[in-house]
C-alpha cells in the first residue's frame, strides 16, 4: 500500500516539475530576465506577485517556473550520460572480463575515492560556468554505482543458458550484450537512474549556488538561492520558493525511485520489507 503511495506521489511531483518546465512560457507572468523593474523591487508575495519580487524587481514566480528548465535538463541529461557510461563500462567489463575488467574496476575505484561533488567542482573549474559544462561535469562523475550493478549482473547473466545459447547461434558480442543482457538488468539501472536524477538536481543547485553553474541572469534555482542569501533579512521569501521547488522535485524523484525499486528490484525489496 505504501508502495503505491511512493510511486503515485513521486510520479505526480516529477510530472508536475516536467510540465512546469515545458509550459514555462505559458505559465510565467513575466519574462524571467528582461522584465526587471526597480519600481517593484523586493515586493513580498501578494496577488500580483505570487512569490514576491527580487532586488531588481523581477517576478520570482516566473523565475522559479523558468528555473525548472535548467534543473530538469541538467538532472535528466547528466544522469542519462552517467547511466550510459556506467552501463557501457559495467556491462562490457562483466561480459568480457580480463584486462578490460581490471581497467574498469580501477576506474570505478578511482571514482569512488573522489567525492563526486568535488570532482564536478574541479571539472567546472576547468571548463568554466555554463549549462554545457554542468552537463559534462555532472555527467562524468556519478556513474560508478550504475557501473558496479551492471558489471555484477553481467557477470551472473553471462553464464545463463539463454546467453550461452545466443553465443552458440553466432550472435556477436555487442548484439548479445544489448539484446540478451541489457534488458535483464534494466530494473535496478532505472531505479539508480531515477535516484541519480534527484542528486544531479541537488548538485546543479549546489554548483550554481557556489557561482559555478548557469551564468546569470538566466534563472536557476541554485543561483536564485545564491542571490537570496544576501537578502535573507530583508526579503526572506526570495529563499523560500526556489528552495521549495528543489525540494519538491527531488522528493518526487526519490519517492519515484523508491517506488520503482519496490516493483523492479524485488531482491532489494525482500531486504527492505
Amino acid at each position: 500500500m505504501k508502495l503505491r503511495a511512493n510511486l503515485v506521489i513521486g510520479g505526480a511531483l516529477f510530472a508536475l516539475a516536467i510540465a512546469v518546465g515545458l509550459l514555462a512560457p505559458w505559465l510565467a507572468h513575466t519574462d524571467p530576465v528582461l522584465d526587471a523593474n526597480l519600481m517593484n523591487a523586493e515586493e513580498p508575495p501578494s496577488w500580483t506577485w505570487w512569490f514576491g519580487t527580487d532586488d531588481q524587481g523581477r517576478d520570482i514566480y516566473s523565475r522559479v517556473v523558468y528555473g525548472a528548465r535548467v534543473s530538469l535538463t541538467v538532472g535528466i541529461v547528466s544522469q542519462l550520460i552517467n547511466s550510459v557510461i556506467g552501463v557501457a563500462l559495467g556491462l562490457s567489463a562483466g561480459y568480457w572480463g580480463g584486462w578490460w575488467d581490471d581497467v574498469v574496476n580501477a576506474l570505478t575505484n578511482l571514482m569512488l575515492a573522489i567525492p563526486s561533488l568535488i570532482f564536478a567542482l574541479a571539472i567546472m573549474a576547468v571548463l568554466g560556468p555554463g549549462l554545457t559544462s554542468l552537463l559534462i561535469a555532472l555527467g562524468l562523475t556519478n556513474w560508478s554505482f550504475t557501473c558496479r550493478i551492471a558489471r555484477a549482473s553481467a557477470l551472473s547473466l553471462r553464464n545463463q543458458g539463454y546467453v550461452q545459447a545466443a553465443t552458440v547461434l553466432g550472435y556477436g558480442d555487442f548484439r548479445i550484450m544489448i539484446t540478451q543482457l541489457l534488458p535483464n538488468m534494466l530494473g535496478p539501472i532505472v531505479v539508480i537512474g531515477t535516484l541519480g536524477m534527484g542528486s544531479a538536481v541537488l548538485s546543479e543547485a549546489a554548483l550554481s549556488f557556489l557561482g559555478l553553474g548557469v551564468r546569470p541572469p538566466f534563472p536557476s534555482w541554485g543561483s536564485m538561492l545564491s542571490d537570496a542569501r544576501d537578502q535573507i533579512t530583508t526579503a526572506p521569501w526570495l529563499s523560500v520558493f526556489p528552495g521549495l521547488a528543489i525540494f519538491l522535485t527531488v522528493l518526487g524523484l526519490n519517492l519515484l525511485g523508491d517506488g520503482l525499486r519496490d516493483i523492479l528490484d524485488p531482491q532489494s525489496r525482500s531486504r527492505r520489507t
Binding site: 534527484g198 541537488l202 543547485a205 549546489a206 549556488f209 534555482w221 541554485g222 538561492l225 537570496a228 542569501r229 535573507i232 526572506p236 529563499s239 526556489p242 528552495g243 528543489i246 525540494f247 527531488v250 522528493l251 524523484l253 526519490n254 519517492l255 523508491d258
Partner: peptide, 17 residues
C-alpha cells in the same frame, strides 16, 4: 526521504534565518 531531498544550502539558509 525529505532529508535526502532537501538542498543542503537551502536548509542552512532556513536554519540560519
Amino acid at each position: 526521504v525529505s532529508g535526502l531531498s532537501i538542498a543542503k544550502f537551502w536548509l542552512g539558509l532556513v536554519l540560519m534565518y
